[in-house]
Simulated assay, not measured.
Amino acid sequence: MASELLDALNLLEKEKGISREVLIEAIEAALVSAYRRNFNQAQNVRIDMNLENGTMRVFARKEVVEEVFDPRLEISLEDARQINPNYQVEDIVELEVTPKDFGRIAAQTAKQVVTQRVREAERGIIYSEFIDREEDIMTGIVQRQDSRFIYVSLGKIEAILPANEQMPNEQYKPHDRIKVYITKVEKTTKGPQIYVSRTHPGLLKRLFEIEVPEIYDGIVEIKSVAREAGDRSKISVHSDNPEVDPVGSCVGPKGSRVQAVVNELKGEKIDIVKWSDDPVVFVANALSPSKVLDVIVYEEEKATTVIVPDYQLSLAIGKRGQNARLAAKLTGWKIDIKAESEAREAGIYPRNEQLLTFDEDKDTEEEYTID
């Protein structure tokens, strides 16, 4: 029995990744439960397991007291000193109470408890592994779907992709490999529950970290992300190294790096713009690919008025206001866009001191857009 038990513990440790100490604790707890249930005992007991010879012994633990009120939990000082004259009040005396047929009953009763404890330990290991992966990206395999969720296998566990986290332009089929962003890891009565997303801005950020070594190494930093999943996104990037072009680093040779991200997101358009701590420059860059003539900043309202050439007005606003909306999310500033002619009539353009001008015949080097 001892060798079989040792072999079983070693096998579970190897296959399930659960330490032998955890399993031994589970067995001991199961034996205590079996003893109390089968022999109607409420006393404090300890199980002594000898894995070398396979013996299991039960010891009742009793506190030494002057006057005994509960003989199941207490023993008088006089009786304790008959066992060992050195015992004092409040010491703990252990008395062996192993029943004759305890081994057979314990084996039968403990099996279910041990299985449950092993399952709990497995769940704990999975939870510990995935709680560290929150806000991270993983590759999963689509397993199945119902009316509410798509279930994605992440290896040891199946994650949930809710309907509102699915990209509208994607079709998910069983066995498809997709990259997902882990948004939340929860403990439940049925084990860890992992929620993932394909629409979260964090997915875009993590994809660029994978594709752009300069971001992974911290040379280039993604300052902000604005995303309307499946349609268009904007990211702002910055580098403290003046010799590094943050936009060019994200674009990659012949656009290879950003194209890899676009392919993973099934053709989602991405604007890459250079971040600036000057809201005038940052807002102008964020409205890429449109040209900007001037940006008027209202610090107290955290708002801006942007002047663009008349022929660029629709481009600056974007389809259904998308370009302006994403630029506002990216910068954190409210953006009101006005055509040049309208601004001239209102007397707000040109100003005496022009803050920002662009050569309308060429693109700014501070932005990159991939369609």
Rank of each mutant, 00 (worst) to 15 (best):
M1E: 05
M1G: 11
E4R: 14
L5M: 14
D7S: 10
L9T: 12
L11M: 14
L12Q: 12
K16Q: 15
I18M: 11
I18K: 11
E21K: 10
A30V: 07
A34L: 07
Y35K: 08
Q41C: 10
D48Q: 12
D48P: 05
M49S: 03
R61A: 05
P85V: 01
P85E: 07
N86W: 06
T98Y: 12
D101R: 09
Q108C: 01
Q112H: 09
V114F: 08
T115C: 00
V118T: 10
E122I: 14
R123V: 02
I125S: 13
I125Q: 15
I126A: 13
F130D: 05
F130Y: 15
R133V: 11
E134L: 01
E134A: 04
I137Y: 06
I137H: 09
M138H: 00
T139D: 07
I141K: 12
V142N: 04
Q145V: 05
I150K: 03
I150Q: 10
V152E: 04
V152W: 02
G155N: 13
A159M: 00
A159D: 02
P162F: 10
A163T: 04
M167S: 14
P168F: 08
P168C: 06
P168L: 12
Y172S: 03
K173G: 01
K179W: 00
K179I: 03
I182Q: 08
T183K: 10
E186P: 05
E186V: 00
K187T: 01
I194D: 05
V196S: 05
K205C: 00
K205H: 02
R206D: 07
L207V: 00
L207R: 06
E209N: 09
E211R: 06
G218E: 09
K223M: 15
V225E: 01
G230V: 02
D231Y: 15
R232C: 01
S239F: 08
E243H: 09
G248S: 10
S249D: 11
G255K: 02
S256Y: 03
V258N: 11
V261N: 08
L265R: 03
L265V: 03
I270V: 15
V280M: 13
V281K: 11
V281M: 09
A284D: 02
A284F: 02
N285H: 15
A286V: 09
K291G: 00
V292C: 00
E300W: 00
K302H: 13
T304L: 09
T305S: 09
V306P: 15
P309A: 06
D310E: 14
L315Y: 07
L315N: 12
I317T: 02
G321M: 08
G321F: 05
R325E: 03
R325L: 06
A327G: 01
A327R: 11
K329V: 07
E340G: 01
E342I: 00
P350L: 10
T364M: 13
E367F: 07
